[in-house]
């Protein structure tokens, strides 16, 4: 369960988040929509611990613990996963090596045994197959020379292997064609159970045709201005975001 309470955050002198309050119970998927500049990406970075964002007020409790006080790697060990809007390239670092190093770092922090190369490959190959990816994906360098769609798929592969309890998808759908969109949705939907929840940040409604959320929130001017069921997304698609900040 994620409970964000009155979260204020700034970059330099600019206050971006101005009191975000939001609760995502276990097993639920919530969508955050909103106009450009509303603070959607800032929210995802603050939750995952990127440097350069200063939290001035409020807290974010993840299963009772304030994650805002944790290092990014400890948040990952606690079960948080951020799917990046722009996945980063790591030249010379093999995808399989990266995934195994990540998984084992997380397992070590949790006091679990590390996976050896054989056990890991078995797990990774199964995940690759499930996401309808080619096996050479594991051999390529992390995101280097990947198309936009491949990068997003790679995020889903990481998510499938790291099996987070809470995934934040930061505009993962931007720039994707319909097939890639379905794959991202598939990635989320296969993890859907009572121990997994997700915060899906998107500018467009179309992703929500494939990942049907339990709730939709509208972030505008650094605050949640409206919340409602999945149908809210359709409504917004029709009427646009205009006028919401005043609401």
């Amino acid at each position: 369960m994620l409970e964000i309470k009155n979260l204020h955050a700034r970059i330099g002198d600019a206050e971006i988040l101005k009191g975000v309050t939001l609760t995502i119970p276990n097993g639920e998927i919530h969508a955050i929509m909103g106009p450009n500049g509303a603070g959607k990406s800032t929210l995802s970075y603050v939750l995952s611990g990127r440097e350069g964002y200063e939290v001035t007020e409020g807290e974010a409790l993840f299963n009772g613990e304030n994650i805002l006080e944790m290092e990014p790697e400890d948040r990952a060990a606690a079960g948080l996963f951020l799917a990046f809007q722009y996945p980063v390239e790591l030249p010379g670092v093999g995808n399989a090596n990266f995934l195994r190093t990540s998984l084992n770092a997380i397992r070590r922090k949790r006091g679990e045994d590390e996976l050896d190369a054989v056990a890991f490959l078995k797990l990774a190959r199964a995940a690759v197959k499930q996401l309808a990816m080619k096996e050479d994906f594991l051999k390529r360098n992390v995101n280097v020379g990947f198309s936009g769609g491949e990068k997003k798929r790679n995020e889903m592969l990481q998510m499938a292997i790291l099996k987070p309890h809470l995934a934040i998808l930061d505009e993962t759908d931007s720039g994707l064609d319909i097939d890639a969109l379905k794959i991202v949705a598939e990635g989320v939907n296969t993890l859907r159970d009572e121990t997994f929840s997700a915060l899906v940040i998107t500018h467009y409604q179309r992703l929500l045709d494939y990942i049907v959320p339990d709730m939709v929130h509208v972030l505008a001017g650094g605050k949640i201005v409206r919340s409602g069921p999945a149908s809210l997304a359709l409504e917004l698609e029709a009427s646009g975001y205009a006028g919401l900040e005043a609401a």
Binding site: P72, E73, A76, L90, A105
Partner: peptide, 15 residues
């Protein structure tokens, strides 16, 4: 790059 470090850390790796 800072974004490479953050990417790795968000996947559980220490700095």
């Amino acid at each position: 790059a800072e974004d490479q470090l953050f990417y790795c850390r968000s996947r559980g790796l220490s700095e």
